[in-house]
Write a protein that binds this DNA or RNA. Structure first.
Lengths: 229, 229
DNA sequence: CCAAAAGTGTTAAAACTACACCCATGA
DNA sequence: TCATGGGTGTAGTTTTAACACTTTTGG
């Protein structure tokens, strides 16, 4: 059943840049395309938006269908609409970026009979369409955002050590941070709560586990506090 | 000549939130709609994107056609695609915000036989579609952006006094700033150049006129400088 | 002479930076 | 016993915030 319009209309897609963090790297989830164009090339998970869903709903749906990821932190990044960005014709894509923790979303992805894998940012394959541009913009946005909003926690498990948090910032910002200064500053903010639990199964002294205290953060934010690393 | 597709496609529009600054207020350019839906209601300037132009090109074209504004600072804001946001059917809009100085773009706008006018942000009329949401988001984005990037200058004439610049920040941020601290900080940055000229036609002591020094800013930025008010 | 903004320094408090050692644990 | 991170305090420096008066100009 075809659709007919008086004027030319674009195809509308969403694409997701999914960041995950492991012990040493920031990684991105990519899928291998099963169909032309760019058949067999790696690409961002994404697909066509349906007329009865919001853009964010479409992004979450595609994320689930193509990588098995649910409940990710998701935020709109930018809309790419250059003529010529898709060889099939006029296609506009609304790009999102997502933050997940790699432990929970470790090896899923083959759900939709498509191959999916995590790639470290410094060893990316060639990407389909203008997905390399989208990814570069997402990385830049993440670097900017992480300093002024507590989004980094989305990349960690619910309970985490201060060292994990520090390493997260070091990886994203690309520079070393001073341990004592970092710990002092972040604890001073009063937006972490001790869980009372300790790390287990590590081959060094066990660290305290903290949790991000959303309520405290929101309360402080209303009183003029602003997060900054 | 109709266009036929296998799947449903959205209509794609751009909308522009154009900010202008006068002596006391931040204002927004609105146009009065000539056609249904929302006939005679005030709305953001904008319109349909064509298949052979970029999104930004479309935004600039609509801005020119509907308000006569050219050469504005323009930046993509957010894409709104909720089903139901347009009573005519599935319509996705890529919103931009623009910064212009009101002196140069004072009373134009009636170009396209449409009524256009500047409204202060605290006395807005009811707006068509979800344009009130778009405008609110643009204002929030501007408030955030202006502190970390030197975009405020786009709202001023090319040559401006330090007092004009300070008032700009006071208006956008909504709080008073200390004169000596502000002047010290901004001059310290080394991104303003004295023009050697003075204000004329004011009924008080004439102030020095400065110009934003793009080259100095870029050079400093490459060396790690980062703008912050 | 009045109103309005121009222009100009200092000081106290707060925030930031750099820096080093002992402790606990599992391999 | 060794490697790995856990955990802790201080001093010097820099940045920020608060604060008031004289000057110039046009009306």
């Amino acid at each position: 059943m075809p659709f007919t319009y008086d004027y030319e209309r674009p195809a509308l897609t969403v694409d997701c840049v999914v960041f995950g963090l492991d012990d040493t790297d920031l990684k991105v989830a990519l899928i291998r395309r099963a169909l032309p164009p760019f058949e067999d090339a790696w690409a961002l998970p994404g697909g066509f938006v349906q007329g009865d869903e919001t853009l964010e709903t479409a992004a979450r749906r595609e994320l689930l269908e193509e990588t098995g990821i649910t409940d990710a932190y998701l935020e709109q990044l930018f809309t790419f609409g250059n003529p010529g960005r898709d060889p099939r014709g006029w296609t506009v894509t609304v790009a999102y970026y997502a933050l997940v923790n790699l432990r929970d979303h470790a090896v899923k992805g083959a759900t939709d009979a498509r191959e999916a894998a995590w790639f470290p940012l410094d060893a990316l394959p060639d990407l389909a369409f203008d997905h390399a541009d989208i990814l570069a913009l997402a990385q830049e946005r993440l670097r900017g955002k992480v300093r002024y909003q507590p989004v980094g926690f989305e990349l960690l498990p619910e309970k985490f050590t201060l060292f994990q948090l520090q390493r997260l910032y070091e990886i994203i910002l690309g520079r070393a941070l001073d341990k004592r200064n970092f710990r002092g500053k972040i604890l001073e903010m009063g937006i972490l709560r001790e869980t009372g639990e300790m790390q287990t199964g590590v081959r060094h002294r066990a660290a305290r586990l903290y949790r991000f205290d959303t309520r405290a953060y929101q309360a402080k934010t209303r009183k003029g506090f602003s997060f900054e690393i």
